[in-house]
Structures are given as C-alpha cells and as structure tokens.
Write a protein that binds this DNA or RNA. Structure first.
Length: 929
RNA sequence: GCCCGGAUGGUGGAAUUGGUAGACACGCUGGACUUAAAAUCCAGUGGCCAUUGCGGCCGUGCGGGUUCAAGUCCCGCUCCGGGUACCA
C-alpha cells in the first residue's frame, strides 16, 4: 500500500485516545520533565496555521524526553475568560459561556487532528468554577498578606495587626502605598473602618484610589501592559487617565526579586531585557528641598545628585498634592487653569506633543539644600505623578526635557558637567542639553573638578551626612490594577461592610459568576454584575461588582495542571514536589510584560506562603516567532475587468487586489477558482504570461481574514496529513524567527515522508524490511543521523532536524537499504516529528507496543568515525583541490601529500611556500608568496 | 531618542568553537517513463567570463581592520524588524 496518511492518522489518534497513551501520573521512580505551551484564548476564528508552531515544537520535545526515559507532563487548557466573547455577547445576547464553549470545542477538534501528546485528562478552563476557585483563593491570600521588606517576603496581615496593637507603626518596614506613622495608642483608638482603611495601605491585594487607564469604549480600566501608545491593546480604543477606587496587586513589592530572579532562569536575552526595562530599576537619591516661607518641603528623586548645583527650577506633576500646598494666592488661578487643561489632554495628545512644553508657575520657591539658592517651583505634565515622588529638580543644561522647558519659559540654564576634552560653553547658544554621563564638574562648589562617578559618590555621602535625603532605589514597575468593570471574568470573593472590603470565608468558594439580563453597565453606571439578582452574602452584605482581569486566570494555571482535580488545594504538596516547575515553556514574546511578569509574581507570592516549592515557575523559556501571512495579489487594469499577470504589470496601469491564497499555488492563480471566488470576477478576462500562466504578486503581511491570507491547518491536514503539517512547520525555519507562512515547498516535505514509507514497503504494499546485517556505510548514515537529530533537538533546531532526516532517507534510498536494524532506530527518531507514520511503521515492523515508549537510540562513536578524511587544500585561503588522507595520517604526511599533489604545482610555481597550516580532520592551508 | 534582534542565490533557509559559503528543500531548465496527464526517477541550477577541454575571477547589506584563513571576531555606517518611551 502507498502511504495513506488519512487512514493512518485516524487510526492512531483513536488508538492513543482509547489507550490513554499520553496520560501521566506522579511516578517517583522516574525523573519528571514538564513541557508547557502558553494556553490559548479560544477565539471565534479558530486556529490558523501560525498557532500550532510552538505546540508542535513542544510536542516534539515532549516525545523526545519521553523516549529518553522521562515522565513528561505535557498538558493543555484554555484561557477562557476574555473580552471578545463578552463583546459578542453584548451584540448578540448570547451568553459568553456558550460562545466560549463552542470555540473550545472547535479548538479541540483542530488540535486533535494534529496529533499532540497532551494529557487531556488534566485540561483546565479558567472560566470553570473548580478552576477559578483557586484564582479567588489566591486573591484572598493576597488580601490577607503584606510584604515585609525586612523578611523580604509576604507575611500575614494578622501579624501586622499584632505589631500595630503593641508598637504602632514603629519598626515596620513594609511595602505600602503611603508611609504612615502612628502609635499603638493611636491604632487602638481608631474606629474599625479607619483600621481597615489603614490595612489596605499594606495588603498585597488592596483597594485604593489610584490613577488608572480608563477605556471608555470598553467601559473598563486596563493594566499598564494592556495599553500601548495611549490606546487599548485589544481594539485600539483611546485610553484616559482617571482616578478611581480600584483593586490593585502590589507587584511593585516584588520588583527587586522579579529582577534578580531573571539571572537564575534560562530565558532568551531579549525577553529578559524587556522585563528588565519594564521593571526599570534605577538607583539614585531622594532629596528634600524646603519650600521658602513655608513648613512644606519637596521630596524629589534623582539619579544624578551630582548635578544639584545645576538646578535652576523645580517641577511638580499636575496631580501632585504639593501643588495646592505651595501655590501662592496670586498664582492660584493660573495654576488651577493649567491643571484643568492638562487633565483634558488625553494620554494620546500628551504623547504626540512630547516636544511641546506646557506648564505654570506656582509663585513659590524652593531652597536648594546644597547651595541655599532659591529656585522657582513650576507645575508641568512632563513630570509624571506615578514615578518617583511626582516632583523633580530640573537641571536644564543636562536633561533635554528640562532644557526644552527652560527655553519655553525663559528660565536660566547653568552648565555643571563638561565632557572630557571640551571647554565650558555659553548655554544661551545651545540647541539642546548636553550629555553628562562623562566629564568633570564645574560651578559645583565642593565637587568642582571631580569626575562624574566620584562626584555622584561624594554628593551621596554629603546628603547622608547632612540628612538632606537618602540613597534610594526606584522602580518603574507599577502595581497591577486588578479590577475590570466587565462581566466575563472571575468574581471577587469580596463583600462590603460599612464601605470597607472583607473577603469571603474560603469555605464559600468558589463564588460563582451570577447570571445577568444584559452584559452592559447598569443605568447608574455600575459594572454588569450590578444587574445580578441577590448579589450579596447570606448576611445581606453587598458583593463586589468588579471582576478580575484576564491575567488572573493565567497566573497559576501551570500549577493547577500538576493536580487539576484537587478540591482541597490549588496543588497538593506531593504533586508540587514531584513536578516542581516548568522545565520548558514555549510561547510568544507578546506576553513579556503581562502574563510572564504576573505569573512570576503570583508564583513568588505562593512560594512565600509555602504553597509551592520553587521561587521561579519557568526554568527555560523559548519564544517561537510569529507566523506572518503571505498575501497574493492579482492586478486589475484600471477601469476594466481585465487582470494582467505579475510580470507584465509594468505595461499597464493596474490596481493590486488581494486574492485568497488558498486558490493560488506556487504563485500561480487557479483562474477557474478565482472566477467562482467572487461574482464580480465571473466574467473577468486575463492577460497571461509564458503561454498560459497567471502569476500573482506577493507580500508579507499580518495573517488576517481581510488580507485573504489565512491558512487553516485543517485544510493542510486534509490535503497532506498532520505529519506533513508538523514537519513542514518545523522545516520553515528556526523556531524563534518570525517568518511568513508560504505553502510553496510543502510538497517537498510530503515527498520526503513518501520516500521514507518506501524504505519499508514496495509499491504493492508488501513490507520489504529484511533482517540482513547492515553494512558499515548504512550504519554510518544511521548513527550520524542519530547524533545530529539528538543534538539538534536539544538545541531546539528543529528545521535542521528535518533536513537531516531528508539526507538520511536520500542516502538510505541510494543504498537501497531496507534493513530492520537501520529502519527501526530511524522510526524512533522520526516518531516525535511524524508520530502517526512512526506508529504505523513500528506496528508494521512487528511491534505490539507504542513507539512513544521505544527507547531513544544512542549514537555510537565507532560508527561515526571515518577511516579517511577528504581535506580541502587551500592556497592563501582559497580552496583549490581536495585530498583524501587516512584519518590517522600525521601532519607531516599530510603536508607532504598536499605538496606532492598534481594540482599543487600550479599554485606553487614561481612562488615560495612560506607556511603550511594543517588542522587535522579539518583543512590544509598553504601560504605562498 | 534609548535598548534588543536581524540582513547569505529567484524563494525558505544551512554552515554548532573562525577552517570547503550556499547543505536540505521550493521554484526553474532539460531529459527518461507514458497515447496523454499525474506520480516517479535522472541531470543541471549564485553571478560574470570561458565553455573545445581544463578552468578562472567575483561573491554572505556597505566601508575599513585583525588572521595562514572571516558569513562567523573588532571598529565605523546603511537598511529592516521588535520592545520601550517625557521614568528624572
């Protein structure tokens, strides 16, 4: 029989399912290996050919590890809460649970056809109560813990309360929203409501008035990573800044650990770099500038304390509380007007007008604590409220923003750093600030003449001695806003008593998402849960109306897979101690600042609680590149219904039109299919080239319906089979690289599988595998392939694996090798890549057990070695001829033989041989001149 | 602006520590088989010159350098992709 992929794939997929081939359990007798894919959001569009890329890679790796004796955990599930299903629900009234369930069904069908080795008994869906019970549980723990900076871990709030009762805030070093000072007496005298309000200042999950990204179009707030360039990541709607009372997670408390942890994990440099930038650690000094004629003082953060002699003004963020405290009565109106104007500017305008400086003078002056000089205090929105202290000292000579501001408002500019090899210059002639990273100090009192690094040190010392400020580390990373004013998400296990939030008892979990009549806000502007009937506790307290954001459910799913059915714990200690952490995580870079930060934070928190045994969840992470679309175009002559082939377009005035890539093969248009594709083209005429071809143009674009370049894996599987799809996705190029999907070339991979098949079976379907002894040559081919494939899998170089298989099968075909001792190990090698075919061949060669449990073959040194080496012989680095030598020939023998070669004379003639380089086993280079 | 990647035939890509550049495929050209097509198989395929034979020169974005030897290392650019952006 010929290679009948349809039958084979159906047969083995059923076999695997019936025999629970991929089900795994804790097994302390075997080493574990955990391979994880980023679970998908099941969108209505289904999978396109780009989605499985990472899944195929991880599946190959899982199967490879299993063959090498590991107990491999390889689960899959769904990130089922999300905006698209809810938006669809608003439009159609269809419950998002139904939409989601349908989409999941579709995903599952598509995934099953590809032949993955997932243990589906461990499937999780984030929208299911048994699952989100643990999301809610984690939230309660975060509510009941605070971050103790001295212990450098999360600690129970109950202990904090005990401390307050006996010692007040004295001696507390905790991550908090605001530094509070109170005595034990004051604490004990506080009404309950005030105590609760105070505790929110410390809780890791806390409710507070914070500046949030409000997206009116989506009717919800968004986290920082969900906003890009002033618009929402999903949908691209404008986002504005607004103060709202919202739940947040105190991720910033973990900033240092999140940063340090990066050094312990095996992730790509680029991904670590993105996280490093996102965390944005900067070391500097916090300094206090007293305000003249006032008891108020301004605290500022600077990384360049050494430039303090160059300060010519101060700037406050418009949102800063200090503005009202310092503003003089005659400037009050102007400042108020400015702040009102600044508020009106959307985040987008603010960003697009970066160069345009706006601001207002407060009328107040600050006193430079080092020089005792008075400098004016301004308000401007170029200073951000959310970073540092919301106030800065401006050094216009050496900061381009301060410079632009000084020029706009005609403020003085004093140079304090002179780059090496330059002279002090007249700042009034400058077009921009000058760099101050290197150089020496001028106009700077006691640090004059010092180099920048020394000056920084000396200033810091001075500040500490005189108690003007303290050395401080600042992070850009902000707390994650955790409320969404939406329906389709996890309800908060929170109720309100006297306006203060309290968490439900754990025994009440899961708090299930209630039904609502509409998925829209209420008339009073409350979130959709405001429509739920009886949305209160048994005691009658109202329950929180917000729901959790998308990243809530995805922050610990990798832990749940370890023990998905446990109704007592998120994950049992036994399961967690066995599976520990994810050994290999494959997914896209787009989650760098979202999911991958949040889940690291979440995991560290659970680690602090002793719930999990590893501090970092993902040991190794590989980013698969994006599969871009490859669009095809036809060219219509303007004003006609006539289409001209690509290479003739120069002669006409044409409009390029996207054409469905599924009716184009190797850039040749299927004209009949095109006519039927759209009624508009029914009577189209064509100008063909090279006789009868219509050649299409092409371009690389995003894969999307509107570009008509979406390729569905189902179609590829229908035509070529899943094994071909798997192999081809890998053959396309390096895993990490982004590349366009181009169906051209898939034939080559399919042909390879058919050739492989023919090593086992003749045209009439007779097995031709023999028990003859393998030749030296055949063993060499096999063992080289074993070495290459094993090595390449370890390096995640799957594209070169496919090439290596092709070379191997080509060689074996040439050798007419049909020997069991060669073909069986080859089948095992092939099984991670083309599991269906490998199973069938394994079965046909007489095995009863599945090939997934076959032992991975070992490359034997003795079969890899050659008796002789073919040396390339170069003259002055240019290869001129080849020379075959015994592998054990000495350098001298090789030199002699090379010079004695008939072609050598031609290159040495009339020249002197100056040097001969012999690298044994590699190359010979003869230097002549 | 800053940070990180990348650039190799008509196309996707290979070359793991500096050691034969273009493996393996696609496409294309020619041929075999066939009434024909499909399938399969064989040969050729970086550019230029020579092609009667050998062959020769150039060539990994551009310009320099190190080295017996550079796609690979160093210095300076250009272009493309990604991240990030008043972060003090």
């Amino acid at each position: 029989m010929e290679y009948n992929f349809k039958e084979i794939e159906k047969k083995w997929q059923k076999h695997w399912k019936d025999n629970k081939t991929y089900k795994v359990e804790v097994d302390n007798s075997r080493p574990k290996y955990y391979v994880l894919d980023m679970f998908p959001y099941p969108s209505g569009a289904g999978l396109h050919v780009g989605h499985p890329l990472g899944y195929i890679a991880s599946d190959i790796f899982s199967r490879y590890k299993r063959s090498n004796g590991f107990n491999v955990l390889h689960p899959m599930g769904y990130d089922a809460y999300g905006l698209p299903a809810e938006q669809y629900a608003i439009q159609t009234g269809q419950h998002p649970a139904i939409t989601t369930e349908n989409n999941i069904k579709r995903y599952r069908e598509q995934l099953d056809k590809i032949g993955f080795s997932y243990d589906w008994s461990r499937e999780v869906k984030t929208c299911e109560p048994d699952y989100y019970k643990w999301t809610q549980w984690a939230f309660i723990q975060m509510f009941n813990h605070y971050y103790d900076n001295n212990a450098d871990k999360a600690m129970p709030v109950s202990e904090l309360v005990k401390h307050f009762e006996t010692k007040g805030s004295e001696g507390i070093n905790a991550a908090c929203s605001e530094n509070l000072t109170f005595s034990a007496e004051e604490w004990n005298a506080m009404p309950v409501k005030e105590q609760q309000e105070t505790l929110l200042n410390y809780r890791i999950a806390y409710l507070a008035d914070t500046m949030v990204n409000w997206c009116p179009a989506l009717g919800t707030v968004l986290a920082n990573d969900e906003v890009k360039e002033g618009v929402s990541l999903r949908g691209g709607h404008p986002v504005e800044q607004k103060v709202m009372r919202q739940w947040s997670l105190r991720v910033s408390a973990y900033a240092e650990r999140l940063l340090k942890g990066l050094d312990t994990i095996d992730w790509t440099e680029s991904l670590k770099e993105i996280q490093k930038n996102w965390i944005g650690r900067s070391e500097g000094a916090e300094m206090v500038f007293p305000v003249k004629d006032s008891d108020v003082s301004m605290k500022i953060f600077t990384t360049r304390a050494d430039t303090v002699f160059g300060v010519t003004f101060m700037v406050l963020a418009p949102e800063s509380e200090l503005v009202n405290q310092v503003v003089t009565s005659d400037q009050k109106e102007q400042v108020a007007q400015y702040i009102a104007d600044a508020k009106k500017r959307t985040e987008r305008e603010r960003m697009s007008e970066v160069k345009k400086m706006t601001g207002a003078f407060t009328g107040a002056y600050a006193i430079n604590p080092l020089t005792n000089e008075e400098v004016p205090i301004w308000v401007s929105d170029y200073v951000l409220a959310g970073y540092g202290t919301g106030a800065i000292m401006a050094v216009p000579a050496h900061d381009s923003r301060d410079f632009a501001f000084a020029r706009t408002f005609r403020l003085p500019i004093t140079q304090v750093v002179v780059p090496h090899g330059e002279e002090p210059a007249d700042t009034s002639k400058w077009d921009d600030s000058i760099d101050s990273k290197e150089g020496y100090l001028i106009n700077s009192g006691f640090i004059n003449g010092l180099d920048v690094p020394e000056a920084i040190e000396k200033t810091k010392e001075y500040i500490r001695e005189k108690s003007i400020g303290e050395v401080k580390v600042n992070y850009r990373l902000r707390d994650a806003i955790f409320s969404r004013q939406r329906y389709w998400g996890e309800p908060f296990p929170v109720y309100y008593k006297d306006d203060m939030p309290y968490t439900l008892d754990e025994s009440k979990l899961p708090l299930e998402l209630p039904e609502v009549d509409k998925y829209l806000p209420t008339e009073q502007g409350e979130p959709p849960l405001g429509r739920a009937k009886n949305w209160k506790t048994e005691e009658g307290y109202p329950i929180e109306l917000n729901t959790m954001p998308g990243f809530a459910g995805s922050s610990a799913y990798y832990l749940r897979y370890m023990d998905p059915k446990n109704d007592q714990k998120l994950v049992s200690t036994e399961a967690n101690n066995y599976w520990q952490d994810v050994d290999l995580y494959i997914g896209g870079t787009e989650h760098a600042t979202g999911h991958l930060i949040y889940s690291r934070f979440w995991n560290k928190f659970l680690y602090d609680l002793g719930e999990v045994c590893k501090d970092e969840p993902f040991r190794k992470l590989v980013n698969q590149g994006m599969i871009q679309g490859r669009s095809n175009f036809v060219y219509r002559i303007k004003g006609t219904n006539k289409f001209v082939s690509y290479n003739l377009t120069k002669e006409y005035d044409v409009t390029p039109i996207h054409v469905d890539v599924n009716i184009v093969h190797n850039d040749i248009l299927d004209i009949e299919a095109f006519k039927n594709w759209n009624p508009e083209y029914k009577n189209a005429e064509f100008i063909l080239e090279e006789g009868d071809k219509y050649v299409c143009g092409w371009a690389v674009e995003k894969m999307s319906k509107s570009m008509f370049n979406v390729v569905n894996p189902d179609d590829i599987i229908e035509q070529y089979g899943a094994d071909t799809l798997r192999l081809y996705e890998m053959f396309l190029g390096p895993l990490e690289q982004s590349k366009p999907w181009d169906t051209n070339g898939i034939d080559g991979v399919h042909k390879f599988l058919r050739r492989t098949w023919r090593l086992f079976s003749d045209r009439d379907g007779q097995m031709v595998v023999t028990d003859e002894e393998a030749t030296k040559e055949e063993l060499k081919v096999l063992h080289r392939t074993i070495a290459k494939i094993s090595d390449d899998i370890e390096r995640f170089s799957f594209n070169t694996c496919v090439s290596a298989f092709m070379i191997c099968v080509n060689d074996l075909s040439d050798l007419k090798c049909h020997k069991r001792s060669i073909l069986e190990p080859l089948t095992v090698l092939l099984s991670p890549f083309a599991p269906h075919m490998a199973e069938e061949l394994w079965y046909l060669t007489g095995h009863n057990s599945s090939v997934v449990d076959a032992q991975w073959p070992k490359a034997e040194e003795k079969h890899l070695k050659d008796d002789s080496v073919v040396y390339p012989v170069s003259f002055n680095g240019k290869m001129r001829f080849k020379l075959e030598m015994p592998a054990d020939a000495s350098k001298e023998e090789i030199e002699k033989a090379a010079l004695a070669h008939e072609t050598a004379a031609k290159w040495t003639e009339g020249k002197t041989v100056r040097k001969i380089i012999v690298v044994p086993g590699k190359i010979i280079n003869i230097v002549v001149g």
